[in-house]
Structure formats: C-alpha cells, structure tokens
C-alpha cells in the first residue's frame, strides 16, 4: 500500500508542500481561490526549522496504535480500516486538545477548518489527502515536492531505495554517489555554517 514517506534529509524548507496542502483542503481547491476564503485554509504539514535551521517537514504518522485516538475524550478519532489513515471526525471533536498532549510529534493544530463545522474550532491534522486519493490523485504535498523529500510509495520500496542510496554513497570502489543531491547538501552546509558563525 502506497503512503507518504518523508525523507527529511532532502528538505530545503521551501514550504511548497504547505501551500499545496492548504489549497487541497480549501473549499475552492485552487490557490488563488483559497487565499480569498474565510476561514483561510491552513496546511496540515508543518515545515519547521531543525537544530541547524534546516527544513523539517512534520506531518501525522498515522501511528498504529495511535496515542491521539486512545486519548480522545470525545471518541472523535478513528482509523480507516483499508487505508490505515487516522481521521478526526470534525463533528464529534470538542476541541479539548487532549490529542495535542498525546501526539509525540506535535502535528495537530486547532482552528476553524473550511471543511469542518462553521464558526467552531476543531483539531485538524493530515488526512492522507483521502479525498484526492479516491479520485486517483496522489497527496498534494507529494505532488508538489521538488526535492524528493516527500514520496508516495510503499514503505518497503522506500527502505530498499534508501538502503541502496546509502550503500552507494559509502562505496569505496569509486567516487560514490551522494545520498543527498549536491545542491541540497550545499544549502544545508551553508545554513549550518551560518548558524555556527552567528553563535560564535
């Protein structure tokens, strides 16, 4: 089963995934339409700054078992059997934030959602773009990612590919192949150096 796999070492922090996610979860479904909507649609993937100011895309892991589901006071969180996606029922959510206390990754936000009940704040998180996937599309964040940080594949495939990349990078036989594209590696080095100089 395909799922969104994150390769954080490739992220350059461009935040295009956030724009695409907010657009995908808007009423109009278009970027320009979304900017005019009330409430303003918000991203469910969160690119934060890592320890060295590198980009870090953070999204729901759809854990199994899911701590948020176990902690939900209102019984509003469930898992969709065939896809494994953990979903929040916007009409049962009471906005108590118990899930925020349970989530070990800090990926749940609280705000009014264009697709939820009007004038009410609720817990919002990644839904694996379920409504796009049933239409044969891939999740919006993956579609827009330019660096291969977000991929849509089976975990087995992702692991195999990663293993190959690392093996080649470590290979002593030749020049080797970098595990991360040269441009991305350079950008991260510059950011880290910048930070270290600033802290000196």
């Amino acid at each position: 089963m395909n799922q969104v796999v994150v390769h954080p070492e490739r992220c350059v922090g461009c935040m295009q995934c956030m724009l695409a996610c907010a657009t995908a979860h808007s009423q109009s479904g278009t970027l320009f339409g979304a900017t005019l909507e009330q409430p303003l649609p918000k991203s469910r993937i969160h690119v934060g700054a890592g320890r060295f100011n590198e980009g870090f895309p953070n999204r729901c892991r759809h854990c199994d078992p899911a701590p948020c589901q176990a902690a939900c006071l209102a019984g509003a969180i469930n898992r969709v059997a065939n896809t494994g996606t953990v979903m929040i029922n916007p009409d049962r959510c009471i906005n108590c934030a118990s899930c925020a206390m349970a989530c070990p990754y800090g990926v749940i936000r609280f705000h009014e959602d264009p697709l939820g009940p009007p004038n009410r704040q609720i817990a919002v998180k990644c839904d694996n773009c379920s409504s796009r996937v049933v239409r044969g599309l891939i999740p919006a964040c993956v579609e827009v990612c330019k660096t291969g940080t977000l991929t849509w594949e089976t975990v087995d495939d992702a692991m195999r590919r990663k293993n190959r990349e690392v093996s080649r990078a470590m290979s002593s036989g030749g020049p080797g192949q970098p595990a991360v594209p040269d441009g991305v590696a350079l950008l991260k080095t510059i950011k880290q150096a910048e930070l270290e100089i600033g802290e000196r």
Binding site: H46, G48, A49, G50, R51, E54, F56, P104, G106
Partner: peptide, 9 residues
Amino acid sequence: RGFNFGQLV
C-alpha cells in the same frame, strides 16, 4: 516558540 520535533532528531 519555534521548538519542534525536528530539533530532537
């Protein structure tokens, strides 16, 4: 304020 999971990895 900017603390996030990525900083622990």
